[in-house]
Design a protein around this nucleic acid. Structure first.
Length: 163
DNA sequence: CGACTTTGACCAGCGC
DNA sequence: GCGCTGGTCAAAGTCG
């Protein structure tokens, strides 16, 4: 990897602990570096070994743990904002990628796939393969631009990255 | 042979 | 109350 020991320290805008916290060696840093998170400018810079063929760039970041919502374009989806309910931590990434699942250093086990109304593309559901780790992950292609992949993480890892 | 993926069914929440 | 939608389960299939 090149330059990247990222600190995800600015991800905690939803108030609770963010699951990247103890992962200073988080392996996603093989692919990305993050700069200026939590400021108004949320920029990522991709590109090092392993993914150069996929051209990660122009990635956007959404914090949907709070009030914002990744799916504001399709407001008829009911699962969007649930007020009054306990909110889990959710962080979504939108990245330009030809592959659906970006190896972020954790091991994921797929447990479901679903066609969603707002998108012509299926949504895939993954769970952390580590026993009793509650983290889930949702992966779907951007409806407007199929070159982009939206990955939503939910929950906190109870362990370090296995790799 | 074990681990993981696939896929349809099932369930619960929400809007009408 | 009903129907729609998203999320999860679990059996069967596939791969290494």
């Amino acid at each position: 990897m090149t330059t990247t020991t990222n600190t995800f320290s600015s991800l905690e805008s939803s108030g609770s602990d963010h699951f990247f916290e103890q992962s200073t060696d988080f392996e996603v840093s093989d692919f990305f570096s993050f700069e200026g998170w939590g400021n108004e400018q949320q920029s990522m810079d991709f590109g090092s070994q392993g993914t150069q063929n996929y051209g990660y760039q122009g990635t956007e970041f959404y914090d949907i743990g709070g009030s914002s919502n990744i799916q504001n374009e399709g407001e008829n989806s009911k699962g969007s904002v649930r007020n009054g309910k306990e909110k889990k931590e959710r962080v979504a990434f939108r990245m330009k990628s030809e592959i659906d699942v970006v190896d972020d250093g954790y091991k994921w086990r797929k447990y479901g796939k679903k066609m969603v109304k707002n998108s012509p593309n299926p949504r895939n559901y993954y769970r952390c393969a580590v026993d009793s780790c509650p983290v889930k992950k949702r992966v779907e292609r951007d409806r407007d631009d199929m070159k982009y992949v939206i990955t939503t993480y939910e929950g906190n890892h109870i362990h370090d990255a296995p790799k």
